[in-house]
Structure formats: C-alpha cells, structure tokens
C-alpha cells in the first residue's frame, strides 16, 4: 500500500486505475490461457465436487475451483473443505484453522496451456 492509496482511502476516492487494470487483466488472462469459459469452469467445478463427494464428505457450497496464473503457468486450484470421510471415523473439518490444512491436500495443480 502506497501513500497515495492511503490518501485515496481517507478521501474515499477511487483507487488509482492501474491496480484495477492489473487485477482485471490477471483474471481475464487466466481464462484466455486455459480457453475455458465461465460456464465450462463452473461445470468442471460441479463435476470435480461430485467425484470428490464419492469419497469424502465435502461442503458443496464452500468448494471453489479457480484458475491462477503466475509466470505464464496456469494452475487449476481446487479448494475443497472436507467435512468427514464417509465411514464417519475421521472428522476432518471443524474450525477455519483446520480448513486451511485440509484444503492443502485437496489442491490439485495442473499445467495449463
């Protein structure tokens, strides 16, 4: 955060447009590079959730599948909080601290195009 950002916040002005441009570009490029539309990504998200749900109980509303790009490498990142396994022995999720750990396991990285 720069001095300008702070002053803009204090004066409730819009932030400088360069950061908006950067964020919008990163999002649109992640989709361009993978050649996936929002609908296809959403369909994939639902199908991934269905497959994972066959093995572990997950929170269907919390699950997020997104594309993240760094250094021209696009990663498919699935963040799926697990409630418990189907045999009920291990309860994997209680608080938000654990949520982070578990989701790490569910992270699925794939090299994009």
């Amino acid at each position: 955060m720069t001095l300008r950002d702070i002053i803009n916040k204090l004066l409730r002005r819009q932030p400088a447009s360069a950061s908006t441009a950067r964020e919008r570009l990163q999002l649109v490029l992640a989709h361009d590079r993978s050649d996936l539309s929002t609908e296809l990504l959403d369909q994939m998200r639902r199908e991934i959730l269905e497959v994972v749900a066959k093995y572990v109980e997950i929170d269907m509303d919390e699950g997020a599948v997104s594309l993240e790009t760094e250094d021209r490498m696009t990663a498919l990142v699935a963040n799926l909080p697990i409630k418990r396994t189907l045999n009920g022995q291990i309860k994997l999720i209680e608080g938000s601290n654990q949520l982070k750990e578990n989701s790490q396991e569910a992270e699925d990285k794939d090299k994009g195009s």
Binding site: T2, R4, A18, R22, L25, Q26
Partner: peptide, 14 residues
Amino acid sequence: NQEMLSIADVTDIL
C-alpha cells in the same frame, strides 16, 4: 500517478 500499468506489471503478466 499509478493511472497506467507499470513496466513491472506488464513484464510480470507477460
């Protein structure tokens, strides 16, 4: 004035 993408922004993204 941060009203234009910086050089680092563009080289990082591309």
